[in-house]
Simulated scan of single mutants.
Amino acid sequence: MNEQALIRDPVAPRAEGRPIKLACRNVWKVFGDGAQRCLAESGGNPTPEALAEGHLVGAVKRATIEVREGENFIVMGLSGSGKSTLVRCLSRLIEPTWGRVELDGKDLLKATPAELINIRRHKMGMVFQQFALLPHLTVLENIAFPLSVQGKDRKAREGRAHEMIELVGLKGREQFYPRELSGGQQQRVGIARSLAVEPDIWFLDEPFSALDPLIRREMQTELIRLQSVLKKTIVFITHDFDEAIRLADRVAIMKDGEIIQIGTPEEIVLHPATAYVAEFTRSVQRAKVMSAARLMRPLSMGADYGGEVRAGDKVASFAASIVGARKPFVVKDGGGAPLGEVTPDAVIDLLTERDQLRETRA
């Protein structure tokens, strides 16, 4: 069976009801002479045999995703899976061979070069693994640089740059040069520079993978903080599932150029669509992705509760407290209404993985 048919795409609760900001529909990126002709002759659905016969390489195949406004959408896969090629197709840094890419419902592939330049300058922010800071410019000048490209006057661009410096925690380092900064500080400059133009959508291609583990986690925390303030639409590329489950509203997993499953981290870990996804997520601690709502059972009459949690809270966030209390916790919705209860035994079973069937409760 074609793995593409197994894709499940539930809307993340946080993004439900929001308009679609960015979408791609049946996007292909095929390398080799005659790629466009091959796609046209097949109506945008060439067989593996047709690609092989034409000596063509499909880097991205039939990719279809919808990213909602304010959503953290993560694309992940191993090296060579096509994730970075896909994000470059979404931003038109490279041209898709086939399909549609839509921003606010408009097909980006039909934008003129002048329109595309304007979109990139005003609506898109990009951060890549390489910091790409200009070594002869200070922190302030690096962050203000895209605003000078926009034609902003010096007062306006430096004012905005100072705001971004404050936002990412670099106050006091305005006149430092990149060589005088740590790796984490350099990446903060890159983030501030991409945010200076106030983008509608933010593309982050493995922005933390070159950092040491402690700095990487610090930058993940910083991204979570920034997103809580800015509420940007984010497409984030990574090969690290722990990073994905910490940051994502939804995750798309790619293999050999195809998206084989889309879902919340909880959905993907607990209900893998293929053997590949199951193996990919095998080592993930279920407590990090399972919510209280999934582990809860109906409320008990007259129960003595030791605390309360929200339905969306991950089990790992309250495991120590509930085990220490030795009492069930009541699970409440966003309005404070009780929905059910989670018991210490259920949490212990999950942590020790004695009863993985328990995680199928809904």
Rank of each mutant, 00 (worst) to 15 (best):
G44P: 14
G80V: 10
L56A: 08
A40W: 05
A63I: 14
R68D: 04
E53R: 15
N45E: 15
A59Q: 08
A59K: 00
H55A: 14
E71C: 06
E71P: 00
G44S: 10
L78I: 03
G54D: 05
G82F: 02
E71D: 08
L78K: 09
E71I: 03
N45T: 05
E71A: 04
E41T: 00
F73Q: 12
H55M: 07
V67N: 02
E69T: 14
M76Q: 02
V60R: 06
A40S: 10
G54M: 00
L56I: 11
A50I: 02
S81K: 03
S79N: 11
G58V: 10
V60Y: 10
G54Q: 11
E49F: 01
S42T: 09
K83S: 07
E53M: 06
G82Y: 08
S42I: 12
I74V: 15
K61M: 09
E49C: 05
G44H: 05
E41F: 01
I74H: 03
T64W: 02
G77N: 11
L51I: 06
N72R: 12
T64Q: 05
G44E: 05
V60S: 03
G80M: 11
T64C: 12
L78E: 03
G82Q: 09
G58Y: 07
A63G: 07
L39Q: 08
A50M: 15
L51V: 12
N72C: 14
T47S: 15
N72A: 06
I74R: 00
K61I: 12
A63C: 13
E69N: 11
N45V: 00
G77Q: 13
V75Y: 01
C38I: 13
A50G: 02
H55C: 04
E41D: 15
S42L: 07
